[in-house]
Simulated assay, not measured.
Amino acid sequence: MNQTFQASATLADGGSAKISTRGLDVFYGTKQALFGIDLEIPRNQVTALIGASGCGKSSFLRSINRMNDTVPEARVRGKVLLDGEDVYDPKVDVVELRARVGMVFQKANPFPKSIFENVAYGPRIHGMARSKAELGDIVIGSLRRAGLYDEVKDRLGDRGTSLSGGQQQRLCIARAIATRPEVLLMDEPASALDPIATAVIEELIDELRRNYTIVIVTHSMQQAARVSQRTAFFHQGRLVEEGPTEQIFSLPRHKRTEDYITGKVG
């Protein structure tokens, strides 16, 4: 299908974008996963990426912090700008980029280490703490911001894998924010959780957006409506439309968006 869509890349409030993509194409070998994506992601808001499985949401997300670099046949063309600087510029330090752009995956993946060491890992390798006490402050502060500290403060030496599924996901969020990133990428962070744990994660996302720019891939349109301020709808590797979440869900400009949101098509 070669249908072409036009999607606005202008922020309605005129504010500057934290992340911008320009003509972003992503390939896996000979298969093209994204086609010419132009998208503006505003600061300190939650932008939800929605669309059917295989539509390019995760490929887009992973292009922001160059996680696609880890896929042998992946190739990216176009620009991904973080504060106006192209993250694919050869001069960019990928390790530093991933400290600025943290990522939380669909399945909680705590390291086989203690709760403390899970969170301390990033600050330690980035040399962020000058002393053991300073490292401890970073760990405790990150656990607090992830809403987990009160539940684990008496067992920081226990393995991260001993926690419940929802707690493990919050531990991974604490680990991601411990390096003091500017952006948090979340790839279906609550899809494996029960409704109570999902509600906790959603409340946490709402709190975190005060300090972070958040981009979330979600298969749940209800979740997108609850947690995001802006929504982008992808279809077969193309951006159909994007805009304020309320407008996308109540008055979409494209029929394909309306059909997807109303469940007429998957």
Rank of each mutant, 00 (worst) to 15 (best):
F233I: 06
R155T: 12
E151P: 05
S142K: 05
G165P: 08
S162H: 08
D69Q: 08
L148G: 02
R124M: 14
T161N: 13
Q247P: 01
S228F: 08
A9M: 11
D259H: 14
D93L: 10
D137L: 07
Q223R: 07
S20I: 03
D83Q: 04
Y260F: 13
V119K: 00
R155N: 15
D206N: 09
Y212P: 00
N44E: 10
A232I: 08
I64N: 00
R230Q: 12
L135A: 07
S142Q: 06
Y121G: 02
T47L: 13
G29E: 12
T30S: 14
F60L: 14
M128R: 05
Y28K: 10
L156G: 01
I140Y: 05
E40D: 11
F234K: 01
Q229W: 06
D93A: 06
A192N: 07
V119R: 01
S16Q: 14
R144G: 02
R144E: 13
V152H: 02
A33M: 15
S59N: 04
F249V: 06
R130E: 13
V71I: 12
L24G: 02
L39W: 04
S63P: 02
T70Q: 12
P123G: 12
K153Y: 13
V139E: 02
L11K: 04
G147L: 11
G29A: 11
V217A: 09
E117M: 04
P244Y: 03
Q169R: 04
R226E: 06
G15M: 07
D154E: 15
Y212C: 07
H219R: 14
I196Q: 15
G78R: 02
R77T: 10
A48G: 05
C55W: 00
K107S: 08
K264W: 01
T198G: 05
P123L: 03
M67P: 06
L148H: 03
D86Y: 00
P90W: 00
R210G: 14
G51D: 06
A7I: 09
E96A: 13
R130L: 11
L34D: 01
D150F: 04
A120T: 03
R100L: 14
A108R: 00
P181T: 05
E202Q: 12
Y149V: 14
R159N: 09
R175D: 08
Q168F: 04
K18E: 11
M186Y: 02
R77Y: 04
A178E: 02
G29V: 15
L39M: 08
L135G: 12
E117P: 00
D187P: 04
V240G: 01
S164I: 10
D69T: 01
R130A: 14
K153T: 13
S58N: 06
T213E: 05
A120K: 05
E207G: 04
V119H: 00
S59V: 00
R180N: 14
S191D: 07
V119W: 00
E117L: 03
C172Q: 08
A199S: 10
E85C: 11
R124Y: 06
R130F: 08
G136P: 03
S20H: 06
R159D: 12
A199D: 12
R66N: 03
S53T: 14
T231S: 05
N2H: 15
M186H: 03
E96P: 01
A52R: 10
V76S: 00
R230I: 05
